[in-house]
Design a protein around this nucleic acid. Sequence first.
DNA 1: GAGCCTAACGGTAACGTGCCCGGAGGGTCA
DNA 2: TGACCCTCCGGGCACGTTACCGTTAGGCTC
Lengths: 363, 363
Amino acid sequence: MTNPEKIVGVKDIAKALHISLGTVDRALHDRPGVSPKTRDLVLKTAEQFGYKPNLAAQALKLNRRLSVAIVLPRHISHFFDPLRDGIRTTAAAAVGVNLALEFIEYPRLGSGDLEAFRKAIQEHYDGIIFLPGDVRKYEPLARKAAQDGIALMCVGSDAPNTGRIGAVSVHASVSGAIAADLLSQNLTSRSEVAIFTGELSTLDHGEKLRGFAAALAMIAPHLTLRPALESHERPREAYRQAFEVMQTKNRPNGIYISTANSMPVLKALEELGLLGKIKVVATDLFRELVPLIETGKVLATLHQRPFTQGRVALENLLIYLLRDQKPQPIVQLAPHVIFRTNLCLFENQIGQSTGEEIEADFC
Amino acid sequence: MTNPEKIVGVKDIAKALHISLGTVDRALHDRPGVSPKTRDLVLKTAEQFGYKPNLAAQALKLNRRLSVAIVLPRHISHFFDPLRDGIRTTAAAAVGVNLALEFIEYPRLGSGDLEAFRKAIQEHYDGIIFLPGDVRKYEPLARKAAQDGIALMCVGSDAPNTGRIGAVSVHASVSGAIAADLLSQNLTSRSEVAIFTGELSTLDHGEKLRGFAAALAMIAPHLTLRPALESHERPREAYRQAFEVMQTKNRPNGIYISTANSMPVLKALEELGLLGKIKVVATDLFRELVPLIETGKVLATLHQRPFTQGRVALENLLIYLLRDQKPQPIVQLAPHVIFRTNLCLFENQIGQSTGEEIEADFC
DNA sequence: GAGCCTAACGGTAACGTGCCCGGAGGGTCA
DNA sequence: TGACCCTCCGGGCACGTTACCGTTAGGCTC
């Protein structure tokens, strides 16, 4: 509408300064072959004219092609499938770049993950999106890959000091703190609480534990925390631990399951007839969890927003690879707190998404 | 890396069929001047070759320029400022289109809003993003604008049956339901609860009320709801109503403030010495609310994610204007539930955002 | 001063698509 | 038969930017 300001291009600058397009281009991109004074002159006029490069033309001319590998487990598909979908969606919307995605899968965290990661590194992709499980084992590999010029983006957890260009995950210690908050709101009398965790060598799992413990100490002095139960992502182990701890005297009245596969623990609770009698806060959302939340047998679950994690991870990776500027290195999302009352907003993400009126993941 | 599939363009199709670029172009875009059989042949080959138009080249050639007006109140800036920021951020990332944004402001909802909207319509923007306050008054205007070919996008609330191309807001009835859920978790004994609402003629405000009442009836039979208190967004009125209702016998032990400006109600509570004694669920986040949440005087607040609302609104508007396909017509976001424990993830959005490590709004 | 080198710059093709112009061929009508 | 129109198609320019090559001026060596 009101559009008095004509759009200004390289040509306009060249014309104004009576120099050629090539010189302006070189000056703007800090390429050799321009004298310092012409360079400054060009930059000054560009600034003054409010020059913004035409991204479409730039993309067309450069005709960039990038290859990105996504190395994630096949297990816990209710988390990693939407994460992959978020990546695909972002890729489909990416304009001006020929993006080749390679989805590499391994059975589960801790079995085949390092091999898959190592293999991906050898393929020399432009970027790799991955979940650093056991940080100490990933560190040397990641550091080497980063030195080789491969852009690494962590999802689900982080691997600091490896040269990775960024990480996207849920804010882990806050997740733990929210769980503590919810339990303290729902347990008024003095009692014990327990936490079931997956793999403490994964950075974010440790953070969740610390956040949970710290928040309990701060805001819920009437709740005492039992030693953490680490299942190492083995379902049978988790089941056994749950069965055992719930039969001790002074059994916990509140439980926080901080790992994504919470079913073994819930199954043990059900068999002991304790579901609904104790307060449970879980993690993520999947089909079997839905009825438990609806009936109030699980108080709440902390949704880790895998779709958004995937979307942001690829977005930031592309920002790094295309423009050479760094985005925010670390993105720590706020988890969604799902109760029975807002459950309906998230159900469409389970299985084949049929929901039409609810945005994919915002949710 | 592994890239056997060459990218295929219009030229390749033309070469394969021994026809000219012009003909392929006409066939692909369903323009006249092509015989049906050549047209089908081209379409078939394009399908077979997996032809995807080069968006960068397309954008460059079309050189589209769009004008979008954003008509929102100046009041309640803690909500509308980040919403505008979300729009600006999306606009900055838009590639291949010369986007002219025009931010039009009016003092407050219900005073000057219709005039501003009417004026914007007369300027014949390509699209208008606005908040439909009193639905009945907006309907005729919006319907006329839609018929004039202006793409209307609602934020914050909806105006159905007006020909608007979409709406982005928080899921209103679920917001109300969450508030009910939280109060029922924190009020164990039989008691009364009250709801303070803004303007019931705004669609989403009515929905919040209905969702709150329905959830109370479903899951909290021990809580009885008082008649809704409608302040018509007038601070003094809200203050008066709060002061009055809290001095009745059988005063409510739980309060849900469903409008964005909750301070008058909270001020009344404070003056009566009731803050901390009764459970309060508020809406949105702003500076004065932070200490109240930190100290537990406000149990929780439902964050309406203005930044995301703005982002999604413009994204969908551009999808509609650039490609001529319709996006999801209605997006209903899940509100974020903010407790004292996850408050820190949202504080950076208040005032001048200093936070570096937290993504803008995901939060 | 001839020969050579290099820094600095000019000119232009090309990226893939959209669109306009014009030409060929066939049909209609005076 | 010639003038005219319509359909279908080929050819080519333009969008803004970048990469490449050619050109010039000026300094250097011997």
